[in-house]
């Protein structure tokens, strides 16, 4: 593996369902440690692209590489998190974090130690032994992200992870995610409807458009890190937001 090998390389991947093109041939690449968002209206192929990269679906055409290795149609190579936290109700917080190990090879002492360490470091230290039903929505999503980290994949696919949270909690979670991302140095592909969210979090934003689902534009977010809430009202931020809204509005009207 050379320094130039992208973390994720999607080349001309496409998918058709019953004659409808869910995703036209699309190409994208993520560098190690990058935070990239996919933004677009419903039906733009975000979820299809996601399912191709996660290995839930096999593309009709094209290939997907992680660290230069062809993983087209294969699962088990990425961390994956959805809007639904999908915590297992009969497992405690720690046991939910180690779910990946439990489902693949069995939980070791090291897995548990890592889970406890993650939980303590990222604000769940008092809830190690709690069952999910005893946690708030924000807390549950924290556990879900810890579970995703604990699978120890460098590439994380996050599909609207904060979509179901109230706006206050959502802002907190976004800041918290950036903190986790910066410390753990993972590569993130993030799907969202929320333009502000995508700008606040990302290095790059890929704007998608429906019928057929495809990537129509790429924007680089040159805002300094670490990001702060103040930035969200500054001219640079607003300029990027206007650009994205134009793209989305233009494609929606056209």
């Amino acid at each position: 593996m050379t320094v130039d090998t992208p973390k994720l390389w999607v080349e001309g991947a496409s998918k058709t369902f019953e004659g409808l093109t869910a995703l036209a041939p699309s190409t994208l690449s993520l560098q190690p440690g990058e935070f990239v968002s996919l933004v677009g209206p419903s039906g733009c192929g975000k979820s299809t692209l996601f399912n191709l990269v996660s290995g839930l679906l096999r593309p009709d055409d094209g290939r997907i590489e992680i660290d230069g290795v062809d993983v087209t149609g294969q699962s088990g190579h990425v961390g994956y998190m959805l809007q639904k936290d999908l915590l297992v109700p009969w497992r405690s917080v720690v046991d939910n974090i180690t779910l990946g190990a439990a489902l693949t090879r069995g939980v070791t002492k090291a897995d548990r130690a890592q889970a406890v360490d993650f939980a303590r470091r990222y604000g769940l230290g008092d809830f190690l032994d709690h069952y999910p039903h005893a946690l708030s929505g924000g807390m549950r999503q924290r556990v879900a992200l810890m579970r995703t980290l604990a699978t120890n994949h460098d590439l994380l696919l996050l599909d609207e992870p904060f979509g179901a949270l109230d706006s206050q909690t959502r802002l907190e979670m976004q800041q918290w995610l950036l903190e986790v991302w910066a410390e753990t140095q993972r590569t993130v592909l993030f799907v969202t409807h929320d333009v502000d969210e995508s700008i606040f979090l990302s290095d790059r934003i890929l704007v998608m458009s429906p019928r057929p689902g495809r990537i129509v534009s790429e924007l680089v977010v040159n805002l300094p890190r670490p990001r702060t809430l103040q930035q969200m009202t500054e001219p640079d931020f607003i300029a990027i937001k206007r650009q994205i809204l134009d793209l989305l509005h233009g494609t929606a009207a056209g």
Partner: peptide, 25 residues
Amino acid sequence: DDDLLKLAHVMGGTRSRVFFKIRLP
């Protein structure tokens, strides 16, 4: 939950482990 089974699949869960850790409980 179908999504939970999908998650298990993406995690690379084996058939028997998914059965004993998710379906059966």
